[in-house]
């Protein structure tokens, strides 16, 4: 549904994105993850036909974003990061206007349906200028959904929402993603973990890694980490663990537990368990620690900085 190859965009001398390639299938929610200024918005603006790339090609539903921009724009729903809206218009009038620009049949009903989807039906006649940030966000989302597009491109869709609204919007996006392609950008890692089937991590205009959220978690950079908890003092436990061959990075936790790591592929857990029992501890807990996206992210972008 989305196919991007070799996409490059320069703003004057500054290269915003560099040779970006990825694709997204129908029914897939793809997260675009990266720090501010990584090139997420630039990529999305190119995909929505807002601006042309300096180099490379992007196809949406088989249409080229530069050559067949109008066809692309018909098929894409876009929520820009800043959620620009005509604040002097009523919610209903604004959506009707956008619907008319898309030549939607029976536009009044369509607007009502969409407002119901985003839970704004009771504010239909209110002026956009009087709405809270969260509600404006939902008006923007309604605008993106109005024509039931095949591809939804959402730039930071939950930014500025309160936690309750965040959950609602995420559920809505997950629902929408079942039958269409969703590309969303975020710098919230748990959000990506929550909604996305696949995550693209982007930094300084380049894709650093691309994988499903599960794979990213299991793909511990350099090995796996395990948390161990015993009854009694943990300080000596750490010393015990350090003596076991292959155990790395032993860290005593403040609550008395100990974390340790080992290289991927060499599962040392049985050996550790034996040694702990042998040393006379009561083993209470031993559990693998998945690396959070946050850590993966820091690891990846940090590693990039060192280069």
């Amino acid at each position: 549904m989305i196919k991007v190859s070799g996409l490059t965009k320069d703003y004057g001398a500054r290269r915003a994105i560099h040779n970006l390639s990825f694709d997204a299938k129908k029914g897939e929610v793809v997260g675009f993850l990266g720090p501010n200024g990584a090139g997420k918005t630039t990529t999305m603006r190119i995909l929505t036909g807002y601006m042309p790339p300096t180099d490379g090609e992007a196809l949406i539903a088989g249409y080229d974003v530069v050559e067949e921009s109008l066809e692309v724009r018909k098929r894409v729903g876009y929520l820009p990061e800043t959620v620009p809206l005509y604040t002097d218009m009523a919610v209903f009038d604004y959506l009707k206007f956008m619907g008319e620009l898309r030549h939607l049949p029976d536009v009044d009903n369509r607007v009502d349906e969409t407002l119901e989807m985003v839970g704004l039906l009771d504010r239909a006649n209110g002026y956009i200028g009087n709405l809270s940030k969260g509600m404006r966000q939902r008006v923007g989302l309604a605008q993106a959904l109005l024509h039931r597009p095949e591809v939804l491109i959402l730039d930071e869709p939950t930014i500025g929402l309160d936690p309750g609204q965040m959950v609602e919007v995420r559920e809505l996006i997950r629902d929408l993603g079942k039958e269409r392609t969703v590309l969303l950008s975020t710098h919230l890692l748990n959000e990506a973990q929550n909604i996305c089937d696949r995550v693209l991590i982007i930094n300084k205009g380049k894709i650093i890694t691309e994988d499903t959220t599960e794979n990213l978690q299991s793909r511990l950079v350099g090995g796996e980490r395990v948390l161990l908890r015993v009854r009694g003092e943990a300080d000596e436990l750490a010393d015990t663990l350090k003596q076991i061959k292959g155990v790395q990075k032993v860290e005593a936790q403040a609550d008395g537990a100990v974390e340790f790591g080992f290289s991927a592929g060499k599962d040392l857990r049985p050996e550790v368990a034996k040694q702990v029992i042998k040393a006379g501890y009561d083993l209470l807990e031993m559990r693998p620690l998945g690396m959070s996206l946050e850590e993966i992210f820091l690891e990846l972008t940090g590693a990039d900085k060192k280069k």
């Binding site: 036909g49 724009r73 018909k74 620009p84 956008m98 605008q143």
Partner: peptide, 14 residues
């Protein structure tokens, strides 16, 4: 200035 131009330029409007 308001950013709404982005809406117009990503709508199917020449």
């Amino acid at each position: 200035r308001m950013g709404t131009l982005e809406l117009m330029l990503t709508a199917p409007v020449r």
